[in-house]
Design a binder for these strands. Structure first.
Lengths: 153, 153
DNA sequence: CAGCATCCCATAAGATACTG
DNA sequence: CAGTATCTTATGGGATGCTG
């Protein structure tokens, strides 16, 4: 449970502001039930998803609302190279976020589309995104506010 | 509005499953009000936060529940190098997620602590984390399920 | 103690050329 | 069309040594 938020020991200092306790208790309960392996896999998925291109590709597919061919993606995902687009699509496919369909015609046609998991993930990330945008002005060292803490060991 | 989820044109194919429409409408409304600059800055913040170490460091600080010295962080953030810890801490500080306090003693003492923004961000990410862990088994190409779509142009 | 400076390497990403 | 192959460059990160 490396990344989870719950304190491991009751002997440690914890935040005592009621606000904090209220907000975090749910998540804490959840974290305590998460295994190291689950935590690690979730970490990987987050890291991959938040990389340079994946979210953008998922968004383009969502925005299109229909399967897109490789070349259409190249046009719409501005700035990506062919190699990186291919790589990223393969990763997204492996993670079950998109589906790749090859139509064995001449010339070949390949279509990529969002899976329902891909759409759901995008929704979840969008929620986080929204929170960040709403707090954009606070992400600034000059506005940093300390958290009140008291020892309770 | 590069990454937002809303379709730009009403003439495009959109998902018509009621489920989809219901779930996404809120986020769509929000996305339409997001400027390119906001979107870009949020993107940067997400990318930085989801990098290798930041979440782990924030978690360790949250878990400790009190300010930690540099050397305590080195111990608790297993596997990180001194250089990268320093770098990451500086970035977290610039983004207003932690506060660095230097006590000009001999030998010098430096303490790092979470800001309320840092704690809040951690909570938001934990929510996403939780969703991912609950759907861990679905992140698999073999379980991919297409999204139903209909043209509405 | 808490770092900065330096060197080194592994990986990510970009550019270009070629192909089933 | 939708890639693959290859080369080069940029970046992240690790290891080591030094210092106010």
């Amino acid at each position: 449970m490396i990344y989870c938020i719950r304190s491991k020991e009751g002997t440690q200092t914890i935040y005592t502001h009621p606000e904090v306790t209220d907000l975090t208790s749910d998540i804490f309960d959840f974290c305590s039930s998460m295994t190291d392996e689950q935590d690690g896999r979730a970490r990987e998925l987050i890291e991959r998803a938040a990389a340079k291109w994946p979210l953008r590709i998922l968004h383009v597919l969502s925005d299109a609302g229909a399967p897109l061919r490789f070349s259409r993606l190249m046009e719409r995902v501005e700035g990506i190279s062919q190699k990186v687009l291919t790589q990223t699509l393969r990763t997204l496919e492996r993670d079950g976020l998109i589906i790749r369909t090859l139509y064995p015609e001449v010339p070949p046609r390949v279509e990529y589309e969002l899976t329902s998991l891909g759409r759901d993930l995008l929704m979840q990330v969008a929620t986080l995104w929204r929170w960040i945008v709403e707090h954009l002005d606070d992400f600034d060292a000059r506005k940093a506010v300390k958290l009140m803490a008291t020892a309770n060991a």
